[in-house]
Each structure stands twice: as structure tokens, then as C-alpha cells.
């Protein structure tokens, strides 16, 4: 028996929340200002808004926010974009049936079903030294595997009508992989990239937090060590905003280049 949590009521609520997202955010902001600036100025949960504003300058200078932020964000997005285009380039191999390399890649899928992906990340963190290049390579490898596993899975659902008509016109296997199968799975790959990019953010921050040398993870660690609640809060807000912007960017790309999938 399966339970579907997406009942009409919940869906309606979700739709309403999305529609009023900006109002909702403004409401929370006001609530925070009123509650923590005026009613509970001294507490251990959230910092005062005025202190957060002041802490931004310290974050910029003392915690070296621009450099650290740039390292994290570039590792994540360059890795994701590179993995995406690498997967597209290798599509003819990945979609091939009974191909040794392709089957080997897909066999790794089995592990990802039973072992949470973050555990692989922890092992990789343990094996490799602290370096932005290593972090980038780690994120690239994880993105690539995640994308090709998704591609392989989704290739089974490519409409037979597209394949049959392409074959009957005389298309070879490589053309079918690149121009039919890849295009057919592309919307699903982009949808998957949204979830993947959340995971990459988590992994990057965990990696930097453990390695303690650079990146946003290091800022989190330092802020914790100094018990600097306002820095912790500010960097969390910045991270959240950029994850949101990243999601919007992927969705924009999906809207622009996979317009057919919304019909």
C-alpha cells in the first residue's frame, strides 16, 4: 500500500504558499525584526537584526566572505555545468545497451539505492586533501555520476514512437542518442539537477567545514568556534539566497531550452 502525501489540500496549500512567497518572506522578516529587535533582544536563538547588519562588515573583512564565497559557489556551479555537458557529450556511450563502460557506470546505481550519497561524500573527504581543486573534482565526479545514472534510468521511458520513426528514417545509433534520447530525457535531467544542486551545496559545505581551510563551510566552522551567532545567521541567509537563485537559474534554463516539457 502506498501513501500519497500530495493530497489536493496539501497541493492547494503549496500553491498558495508559492504564490504568496514574497509576502510570506516579508512577513517572516517583519516578525523577526519585531520579535528579536524589540521584544526579545537578548536570547540564544536568533540575533538582533541591527547586530546582523553590523556583523556583515565583520563577515566581509574578518571571515573573508568574498573569497570564501567565490570558492564555494564556483566549485558547485562549474562542477554542475561541466558534468551536465560531459554527460551530454558522452550520451552515445551512456545510452548504449550492453556496453561494458555504460553498464559499469550503471552498476554503481545499486549502491546509491541503499547507501545515502552523503556517506560517499564523507569517504571522499577522508581520502582527499583540502584543496579547492579537489573539492571541484569531487563535486564534478558526484554530479556526473548522478546525472548519468538518471540518464540511464530515464532512457527506458523515451517514447518508442520517436525511436521507431528515427530508425525508420535511417538514423544511426549515435544520432539517435544525441538528437532523440538526450533531448527526450533532458527535461528530466534538468529537473534532477535542481535536487542535485541542493546536494552539491550540502556536500561542499560539509567538505569545507571538515577540511577547515576555505569556503563557506569554513566560515560556518569559525562562526561556531567563536560562538558568533550573528555571523552564523548572516552566512546562512546568504547561502539560502544563493541556493534559491541557483534553483531559479536552472528552472529558467529549463523553461528556455526545454519548453516542450511543460505541455
Amino acid at each position: 500500500m502506498s501513501f500519497n502525501l500530495q493530497t489536493p489540500g496539501i497541493l492547494k496549500l503549496k500553491k498558495l504558499a508559492l504564490k504568496n512567497l514574497h509576502r510570506l518572506l516579508l512577513f517572516y522578516l517583519l516578525l523577526w525584526v519585531v520579535l528579536f529587535e524589540f521584544i526579545l533582544p537578548a536570547n540564544n536563538f536568533l540575533p538582533k537584526p541591527s547586530i546582523v547588519l553590523l556583523s556583515f562588515a565583520a563577515l566581509w573583512k574578518d571571515y573573508r566572505l568574498p573569497v570564501n564565497f567565490l570558492i564555494t559557489i564556483s566549485s558547485i556551479y562549474v562542477a554542475l555545468v561541466a558534468a551536465y555537458f560531459l554527460a551530454e557529450y558522452l550520451a552515445p556511450v551512456i545510452f548504449k545497451k550492453n556496453h561494458l563502460f555504460s553498464e559499469f557506470l550503471f552498476s554503481l546505481h545499486w549502491f546509491s539505492i541503499y547507501v545515502p550519497w552523503i556517506i560517499f561524500g564523507i569517504f571522499l573527504i577522508y581520502w582527499f586533501p583540502a584543496s579547492p581543486i579537489i573539492e571541484f573534482l569531487l563535486l564534478l565526479v558526484i554530479s556526473f555520476f548522478s546525472l548519468i545514472i538518471k540518464m540511464k534510468e530515464e532512457s527506458a521511458s523515451v517514447g518508442k514512437e520517436y525511436l521507431d520513426s528515427a530508425v525508420s528514417l535511417g538514423a544511426d545509433e549515435k544520432t539517435i542518442s544525441k538528437k532523440i534520447k538526450w533531448k527526450a530525457v533532458q527535461p528530466k535531467i534538468l529537473k534532477h539537477s535542481v535536487q542535485l544542486h541542493f546536494n552539491l551545496w550540502t556536500l561542499a559545505i560539509v567538505f569545507e567545514f571538515i577540511k577547515n581551510g576555505y569556503g563557506l563551510g569554513t566560515i560556518f566552522r569559525l562562526a561556531l568556534d567563536y560562538k558568533d551567532l550573528s555571523a552564523l545567521f548572516t552566512v546562512s541567509i546568504i547561502t539560502g539566497v544563493f541556493i534559491y537563485l541557483g534553483t531559479l537559474l536552472i528552472k529558467y534554463y529549463q523553461n528556455k531550452f526545454c519548453h516542450w516539457s511543460f505541455n
Partner: peptide
């Protein structure tokens, strides 16, 4: 391409416009 099959389900590629769909056939046939 000598005897081309038009499947029962609509098979024009949704990611290509009319012109591109036709050009595809010319390229691969």
C-alpha cells in the same frame, strides 16, 4: 528511409520545430 514508418502515436519530435523536424529526416535518410 526507403520505406518510412509513421507510428500510431504522434512522432514529430517536440524539441524540434517544423523545419528542424524535416531537416532531421534529410540529414539521416
Amino acid at each position: 528511409g526507403t520505406a518510412a514508418f509513421v507510428p500510431e502515436k504522434p512522432s514529430s519530435f517536440p524539441w524540434m520545430n517544423v523545419k528542424q523536424n524535416i531537416q532531421f529526416a534529410i540529414e539521416v535518410s
